[in-house]
Design a protein around this nucleic acid. Structure first.
Lengths: 341, 341
DNA sequence: AGTAGCCGCTAAACTGATTTAGCAGAGCAT
DNA sequence: ATGCTCTGCTAAATCAGTTTAGCGGCTACT
């Protein structure tokens, strides 16, 4: 790889100037007194030789590598990760940077190893990402340089980027209230573990707060709330079934995420009920299945690309001390209608 | 990032030896005549200073960066990509390498840029990955060094890693034949574009070949084949509906991928038919939804992690000229049963 | 006349590692 | 005593850039 590349010395020789001159011209240094003709000659020589600087050599001197470490627990391999990485990649490219990606799989040894591998390569900064929105403890090794937390917060009040789950809670609730749903709204996906331990989830409590704010403002109470051990389709399915077995059937349900909603759809279909005519459904995440369901599921999208972008922007361009909350837009599909009775 | 790091010179000084000696000891050079005591002193000094070599400096001299470029069209951001990256990441870690990941988004300018960014950083090799299994043309710039194609082939017969779709075709078909299905098997997802143009898909023709091999060996003909413009749920849904509108109802269907199968499930549920009692379903990919469907969908898994792994292994450890075909294991779930009549 | 300042450019140091070439001293044979 | 080899180690070159310090030659001013 990269044998026979022209070096700066080659360019200088061809231009009949010193390495110093060539370096200054190519870096567009201000205040240098090199003649217009010298500029021409250097540019021409570089062009002809197809010169590209060796960044390893450059960064040895400048201590800048134009490389960002993207360290995540497990994010790189899930569908949730894609957007984060893509956004970060885009923003990095715009700033002529590149991403060194590693995954720790939640294993402390791997993490230690990954971080050392990054630091050995003199990365300019670290983006530390989590799959589930949560509070975490940052390994001290990376605190020596710029760090941005992505989809996470920490005790060290480092700059961080989070989805605005609280607002999303208000958004989905409003979508139901606006259609006239009132006291027969049920909630699927309560979960003590997620709600009480910020090291497990920040999303659950935030979404819940938002939902209760919106309901409170409208003076409405929830019909019921179903607890779910996990936020997976099978739990949504089970919850929906118990909900339907009770006398008071809800006119609408809020699911804490799309996978739960998927399970709920299955239970509704089995019971011969149709969405949204019999029951409206709203949810969170905008998982790809939300668009594939029939009818399409209205849900608030996790703005992964935006978040990845934002993390790079904060890392390279600087940002406020405040956590950066990225809005979760509502994707309106066909799962919400006015209650029939 | 990485200020105040101890350098080799620091270690040497503390050990009371030259940089040369320190370098040789730390690199475990054979045939050096340094005393056991010198070894001790160097190791002790390195330990005490927490010395870690500056890889930028090292690679300037050695022309090795222990860094691999992972260039993909769009793979990094989809659910399909995760596994490829994870496998590559794992294998790379085992060999003390690290991955520089970029995405070209199928844009030639981005691609050019990405490749230059990688080469400027002196990567040791390139893994060039595609989201859809297909034949592609490799940008000449990367041919200067080691390259492995992942989920793709090219005209240059570069080493490549592909899923064994043909065998998977036989596998899914056998799963139905073994249960006694015969002349009432339908196929959903024929698609001229994918089948005839290897730059679009290698998977479609291979799967089809496998299916026909297995059917041929059993002396069985397909009941019908449905064409689909895309392999998305809505097309599977539509295909299944037309299939059910005909007099001869199939006892089993093969879907060309899981998203089509998902659509087929929706149409079956709507028609009040149950899987697998009324109709068995098999498919390809093992998309996460396959496990979420009720009943779980039997499907052949795209072995993404294995493939990512394999690509790194071939790049670093060398491999045969033959394309490396990775088997697609059948995930047996509840969507297949014997035909009832 | 002397010198200060500008112009256009370059030599050399520097970054932190690896690697080549070779030195001083001990032991041994001739 | 001389030459030879072996041992244990080091000076210096090298990789490909950036950066500092400064050198001649010219003009302009006092």
């Amino acid at each position: 790889m990269g044998r026979n590349r022209a070096t700066l010395a080659d360019v200088a020789r061809r231009a009949g100037l010193s390495k110093t001159a060539a370096s200054m011209v190519l870096n567009g240094r201000e205040g240098t007194r090199l003649s217009a003709e010298a500029h021409q000659r250097v540019f021409a020589a570089a062009e002809e030789l197809g010169y590209r600087p060796n960044l390893a050599a450059r960064s040895l001197r400048t201590r800048k590598t134009a490389t960002i470490a993207f360290v995540s627990d497990i994010v790189a391999t899930t569908r949730f990760a894609g957007g984060l990485i893509r956004g970060a990649l885009d923003a990095a490219r715009e700033r002529d940077h590149v991403l060194l990606i590693t995954e720790t799989q939640g294993d402390a040894t791997f993490e230690q190893y990954a971080i050392e591998a990054m630091l050995d390569r003199q990365v300019d900064g670290v983006i530390y990402a989590a799959m589930a929105t949560r509070r975490l403890t940052v390994p001290p090794a990376i605190l020596g340089g710029p760090v941005v937390l992505l989809n996470a917060t920490s005790a060290d009040d480092l700059p961080c980027v989070l989805p605005d789950d609280e607002r999303a809670g208000r958004t989905v609730t409003a979508a139901l209230l606006d259609q006239g749903h009132r006291d027969r709204i049920a909630l699927i996906g309560r979960n003590r573990l997620k709600e009480d331990d910020t090291e497990v989830s920040l999303a659950a409590p935030a979404r819940l707060r938002g939902i209760h704010q919106a309901l409170g403002a409208a003076g409405v109470d929830l019909l019921t709330e179903c607890f779910c051990a996990e936020w997976l389709p099978e739990h949504g399915y089970a919850a929906m079934r118990t909900l339907l077995s009770r006398p008071a059937r809800p006119t609408a349900i809020i699911c804490m995420n799309d996978r739960l909603a998927f399970g709920a759809y299955q239970a509704l279909a089995e019971a011969g009920l149709t969405v949204p005519d019999d029951i409206s459904v709203v949810s969170f995440d905008d998982d790809p299945i939300a668009a594939w369901l029939r009818p399409g599921l209205s849900t608030t999208a996790l703005p992964h690309e935006q978040m990845g972008r934002r993390a790079v922007e904060i890392l390279l361009d600087g940002g406020d001390a405040e956590p950066s909350l990225v809005p979760m837009p509502l994707r309106r599909r066909r799962s919400v209608a006015a209650p029939t009775e």
